[in-house]
Amino acid sequence: MRRIVAITTPLTLLLLIAPLLAVIPAGLTGGETLALPPEGLSLRWWKVLAEDPRWGEALLNSLLVGMGATVVSLALGVPAAIGLWLARFPGRGVVLALCALPLAVPSVTAALALYFGLAAIGLANSLAGLALAHAVLGVPFVVIAVLASLRMVDPVLLRAAAASGATRPAAYARIVIPLASPGIAAGGLFAFAASFDELMVAIFVTAPGAFTLPRQMYAGIREQLSPAIFAAATFVTVLAITLMWTAETLARRRVRGA
């Protein structure tokens, strides 16, 4: 196995980041099209990004919507996954299938359905509505990921905890949640990424003038594929790396301090 991974791991990682490596120089091109190697180096597309306030707003909107959607889908999905893990009951398969349904429906159909659903409660043209819609789309990730990481754990542990005198909520807090945490983290991450990159619902459920980042990138694509989207992607990537590094450092410091 070690020999296999010595070869496959670097190749796989290269595949994963190849487009990103391409994006950075592509965003610095002086030309108007996507060219690698770029047609001369220039900051003109970064200037477009800096000068047009829509990009900054789009990024902010995407972050807000993403966070809101993640919070809601975790709040709904984690308890549901725990419930599904806890007991086998008739219809469990159906419930699981329903939880996974938003993932399986083609995005444009889901977008249309969610639009009409939100319109019924008056949120069809708002960011809050978009966050709710994204929460619905993020739930399958949360449920599947949490269930997978709980699959190895036997519910009998809970009964053991109860037998040793732990109350129900304590048992959950002390035992189940920590065991499920890799799944919760993975699920939450997927839900956020799904929302951050979601286009179809964002096309339908857009507050006027309040684009999300994918919508902003998609804007005008009928007319032009501007390298500005590469500059935007580079910026977001750098932002992501910074955030993740900060989170890691803080976590490490907390562990060290504890």
Binding site: I17, P19, L189, A193, A232
Partner: peptide, 30 residues
């Protein structure tokens, strides 16, 4: 580091990534 490398692509839109593949794979591409 590896986890970061796996997660970072998440942040870039699928549109950007498809466009990046165009730039990479076209006849005059990298």
């Amino acid at each position: 580091i590896v986890r970061a490398l796996i997660l970072v692509p998440f942040w870039s839109s699928i549109l950007v990534r498809s466009a990046a593949w165009i730039a990479l794979l076209q006849r005059d591409g990298a």
